[in-house]
């Protein structure tokens, strides 16, 4: 048994903000992206990342993947609001599926100055199984994919190498339930 505190402990009222990845199937029509983005900004929700592409040309469907932050209640409200939009077929929180896969792609351009840096870069690239897109004398471009977390770690590791210059682009996560 634990002893009673001499001062009362305040109840933690901080709301739990969780990262969620939402997968939305929509009719590919003018204004659909504006509708979705407008819903988020108008109701004060966050968009951490966003990805949109046509996935079924015949049926004219796009899949939109949105990474967002919010407590569970907010995420359910976002889903309900998305499903009210006329062109939306479905909105799914990937976290609620029993099985789902997530990937993000990142292209990184790294400029380095010396052999030692080159070796360290090569080493990390190897560990993370990133693909070399192009290599010139003092610059290399890698493609790395996986969960956003995996890419974050790769970038953190690169950060430990001093004196190099990194430029990158990320697709934002995409995901699929099974």
């Amino acid at each position: 048994m634990s002893s009673t505190s001499v001062y009362p402990t305040p109840i933690n009222t901080f709301k739990q903000s969780k990262r969620s990845v939402l997968s939305v199937i929509v009719d590919n029509e003018p204004g659909i992206l504006a509708r979705i983005v407008g819903l988020f900004s108008g109701r004060g929700y966050n968009i951490e990342a966003l990805n949109v592409t046509v996935v079924d040309v015949k049926k004219n469907l796009s899949r939109i993947t949105i990474e967002t932050l919010g407590e569970e209640k907010v995420i359910s409200q976002i889903i309900a609001q998305l499903e009210k939009l006329v062109p939306v077929h479905s909105a799914t929180n990937l976290a609620y599926l029993s099985e789902s896969y997530e990937a993000e792609i990142c292209l990184v351009k790294i400029e380095f100055e010396n052999e030692e840096q080159d070796q360290k870069i090569l080493n990390f690239a190897d560990i993370y199984r990133s693909r070399t897109v192009q290599k010139r004398q003092n610059v290399v471009v890698y493609e790395i994919s996986g969960t956003s977390e995996r890419i974050n770690k790769f970038l953190d590791d690169l950060d430990t190498i001093g004196g190099i210059k990194v430029e990158l682009v990320r697709s934002g996560p995409i995901g699929l339930g099974i």
Partner: peptide, 11 residues
């Protein structure tokens, strides 16, 4: 009838 009215303000 509106799903988004459920649990929006009050659980």
């Amino acid at each position: 009838i509106d799903q988004s009215s459920i649990n929006k303000n009050v659980k």
